[in-house]
Design a protein around this nucleic acid. Structure first.
Lengths: 206, 206
DNA sequence: TTCGGAACTGCAACGTGTTTCTATTATGAC
DNA sequence: GTCATAATAGAAACACGTTGCAGTTCCGAA
């Protein structure tokens, strides 16, 4: 499932001693493992604490709620994916082709681990205002991934995408998230999701 | 599961004696009142039972979980709105104008009671597979409302909308729901929501 | 009217997210 | 190396969704 991340010295965002970073990593690893094995309900705070080898109070010191924990796990998952995939430009000759390619890949990836996806998606959707920060991180990741796909070769690191492109990316990510929710709750098949997204992308990018 | 019942005269959907319909109504009233006063967290099953003047076990007999309860409340809210608004054709000369009109109205309505909207929206998003039936009802209500707006005067009761129109309606309702979630979680202002929806509608309907 | 089963009440109990508290351990300044 | 402070462990307790159960009431059929 996960490639182990080296006990690296520098994380993206600083924050804490090596021991603390290690605890944080262990906690997120345990969260993802439990989510992957049994979905949202299997991510029980006592179980996460035990598997990460920290006390329950410590878990809550790092993540103030189960939802914070799962949304952070989602952010890290995206981050890891981006690190691996984000190197080479997205294949495809038109914006729709590229966006459809990327979403198809991402969707397949998530559907490959239904339990994990269920846990992360439901947490994301259930989050309330107190999780705004973590949610925002994920939102930015999504927007970046999509504007990058829209621009294709023309994309340059660090450049602000146009308002138009951001608006389009947001619409597409809304549809994608809703489709994932439908799939997670058993209201739509994998094929339904793929079709629906493709339709939406074609409607929006033309 | 019900065989015929003699007593009751007419409800929309059969189901139960007058006393049972009354209990169901009281429960949903209590749910909406509590949600309106304190949002999702304030809808506590014991409190709902007490306010509806039924035993806790009875509440669970009518609605097998808090999520079922809240999604059913959402369905009834929509239904009530439709009954009131659904008479006259939607004003506006183009599909986008009509859809924007309807969504603007609906959004304003929901934003007028932030707590209630928070409760209903979060429940809808958190629902798992066991709530599929109730969710489907709400989905149909949304689709109907939107295809009706798209067609405008051309809409005729009972006629199946085209696949194209349904696909468009689904994209728009995805965006609308996501926007509501953003608003509920404090990540977007009322104005943001209006702008985002308008952008999406213009993109999709052209 | 009487009877049998379904529906309802009241209440206790359980599971899991969350909080709280004390004792212990790690960390960093001096 | 010593000490003050922060971080952690361990465990109990609380809150609320949910379940289970014994006794009571309601309702339709005979």
């Amino acid at each position: 499932m996960r490639i182990l991340t080296t006990t690296n010295s520098l994380t993206t965002d600083d924050l804490g001693s090596a021991a603390q970073r290690d605890r944080r990593r262990r906690i997120l690893d345990a969260t993802i493992a439990l989510a992957s094995s049994g979905g949202f309900d299997a991510v029980q705070m006592r179980a996460v604490a035990e598997q990460a080898d920290v006390a329950l109070g410590t878990l809550y010191r790092y993540f103030p709620s189960k939802i914070h924990l799962l949304v952070s796990a989602l952010a890290r998952t995206f981050e890891d994916t981006q690190t691996i995939v984000g190197r080479k430009p997205v294949p495809g000759d038109t914006p729709s082709e590229r966006v459809i390619y990327v979403l198809r890949r991402a969707t397949r990836g998530m559907q490959g681990d239904a339990n994990l996806t269920e846990a992360l998606t439901r947490a994301f959707m259930f989050a309330d205002a107190s999780v705004a920060t973590e949610i925002h991180v994920v939102g930015m990741q999504l927007t970046t991934m999509l504007t990058r796909s829209i621009k294709g070769e023309a994309y340059v690191e660090g450049e602000q995408p146009s308002d138009e492109d951001v608006a389009i990316a947001r619409v597409i990510s809304d549809v994608w998230l809703s489709a994932l929710v439908s799939w997670v709750t058993g209201r739509a098949s994998a094929e339904d999701v793929a079709d629906h997204i493709e339709t939406a992308v074609r409607l929006v990018l033309r």
